[in-house]
Computed example of a mutant assay.
Amino acid sequence: MQIDIPLSRRGLFIGTAQAFAAIALAGPGAAAEVLPKMTVTRDPNCGCCGNWVKHIKAAGFPIDVVEIDDVMPFKAKLGVPEALMSCHTAEIGGYVIEGHVPAEAVKRLLVERPKAIGIAFPGMPIGSPGMEVPGQAPQSYEIAIFSAGKQHVFARYRGLQQV
């Protein structure tokens, strides 16, 4: 059975308004998530960096990878504190992401948009993205949020799970 509905400007306007309202009320998960491009700078000889990039890509982030032999001056130029430096550095949405930070923490940073340079953790705990070891229980770790001269805990994780 086909129903013919005459199309008028008013009907089109009301229908469009209803569609936008439905999308807005459904929340951010209703539409396809559009994530900004991430640029990852890494040492070409580091295998765990490649595994972290795979984790980030699987979470939906478009990525460019830049490989340089000496990443330390680059990190310092971006404002990463020496105590938080790790094996790879990413830039996204005006922030720096240092180390094996889970994709969900990056997404949270991009949603909350705090005043900071970025988030980081310098270690390579088992179970963090890119450091998964079959048969090994994931370790706990803290992600720091940092700005010039200060830092504090942004999130705590055990493997890929926030705790």
Rank of each mutant, 00 (worst) to 15 (best):
G29F: 05
D4K: 08
M124N: 01
M131N: 07
V96H: 04
A137Q: 14
R113G: 15
K115L: 13
G50V: 00
N51H: 12
Q162G: 06
V106A: 13
I145F: 05
S140K: 14
V65D: 00
E142Y: 02
P81D: 14
I97L: 07
A26P: 08
E98S: 10
K150M: 10
D4S: 08
I97C: 07
I145K: 07
P122F: 10
A21W: 12
L78R: 15
P129S: 06
E33P: 02
V163S: 13
K150Y: 08
A22H: 04
P122R: 10
L35A: 00
R108E: 15
A17H: 01
Q139C: 02
R42V: 01
E67W: 11
P73K: 03
G159P: 01
C49H: 03
K54F: 02
I3T: 09
L110M: 14
E67C: 10
L35T: 05
R9I: 02
G149V: 02
I56V: 12
R10I: 03
V133F: 05
I63V: 15
V101W: 02
M131P: 07
S140R: 11
A32K: 11
G130E: 11
C46L: 08
Q136G: 00
I56F: 01
R9P: 09
L160P: 00
K107Y: 01
V133N: 02
I97M: 09
F61D: 06
M72A: 15
H88A: 09
Q162V: 11
A26I: 02
G50L: 03
G130M: 11
D43T: 08
G15F: 01
S128N: 07
R10C: 00
S8E: 02
A17C: 13
Q2H: 07
P73W: 02
G159H: 10
L84D: 11
Y95V: 10
F154T: 04
G79V: 12
W52E: 07
V153G: 05
A24W: 06
H100C: 11
V106P: 14
T39A: 03
P114W: 13
L109F: 01
A120K: 09
K54R: 11
M85R: 15
K107Q: 15
V80T: 13
T89D: 07
R9S: 12
G149R: 06
N45K: 08
E67L: 05
D69E: 14
N51D: 06
Y141T: 07
C48A: 04
K107A: 12
M38D: 01
D70F: 03
R9N: 09
